[in-house]
Simulated scan of single mutants.
Amino acid sequence: MTHTQLQPLASETLRTTSIPVDLTPSTPRPLYLLVTGPLSPGDQLDISADARVTNDCGRPSGTRYTVGVGWHLWCYQYVGPGINTGTWSRISHSQGANVTPEGHHLDLHISRLHTVPEDWPAGGRMVVVLQADAHSTAWQKNGGGDCLTVDTGYGQLIVRPWVAPPAA
């Protein structure tokens, strides 16, 4: 089956500039988000995303510590502006790494080829989201309010849609 590539979509608009550090990796924040055009089951999305975070936890006079960062791609069906209450589906494996006080910065990169599932409504638009979380066993060292900074100007989310030919 030969797919036809459509115009790539890209977003460099950060949804948040900080990720709270806590104990669990189950509190992600959306970093980048974009809405596709109409899709049908069998279409494919070539997705890539980059971001960078900075570990300033404990600066200037608190305790410095290492923070684990996890990042992943998700999607849900677009139903209107500002509405994200649909069922979220993870479309990538999790990436993860530690950002140490000495390393200070961590580049996040992920890419995935995602096939639109068979139960997708024909013509439905998809929201693709890069999310990340920050966690550490030392998260309360400075009172529990530390955050990683998501650096402006160091990332983007790109989706290259490939549409399947119409059924014969």
Rank of each mutant, 00 (worst) to 15 (best):
P161Y: 03
Q156V: 12
P81M: 03
A167L: 15
T24G: 04
R64L: 03
H93C: 13
Q7N: 09
H114F: 13
V159I: 15
A134L: 10
L108T: 04
L31F: 07
G123M: 12
T149Y: 07
C147T: 15
I19W: 00
L45K: 02
V69F: 00
A138R: 13
Q5K: 12
S136Q: 05
C75T: 14
D119C: 00
Q7C: 11
P20H: 03
T17F: 07
I110Y: 01
D151G: 04
H109Y: 13
V35Q: 08
Q7A: 14
Y76P: 00
Q5Y: 10
G42C: 00
T4Y: 06
G103P: 05
L23F: 11
S18C: 06
L14V: 07
A49C: 10
A97D: 14
I19A: 02
T87H: 07
D146V: 08
V129E: 05
I110A: 01
I158Y: 03
G155M: 09
G37H: 05
R112G: 03
V99Y: 01
E12M: 12
Q77V: 09
V163Q: 07
G82V: 15
Q140K: 10
R112I: 13
A134M: 05
R160W: 12
G82E: 04
E118H: 02
I19H: 00
S61E: 10
G103V: 12
I91C: 02
V159K: 06
E12S: 14
V150H: 01
T4D: 11
D119W: 03
P28H: 04
A134V: 02
A138F: 12
T24N: 11
P161K: 11
W162F: 15
P38M: 11
N142D: 08
P117Q: 11
R160G: 04
Q131M: 10
W88E: 10
P165F: 06
H105K: 10
L106C: 12
T27E: 10
A164Y: 00
H109P: 01
P38H: 09
I158E: 12
R125T: 06
Q131E: 06
N84W: 11
M1G: 02
P166D: 02
G143A: 09
P8R: 13
Q44M: 14
T24I: 14
A167G: 11
I110W: 01
A10E: 13
R125H: 09
G155H: 08
Q7F: 14
N84C: 15
L39N: 02
C75H: 04
D151R: 10
P41M: 02
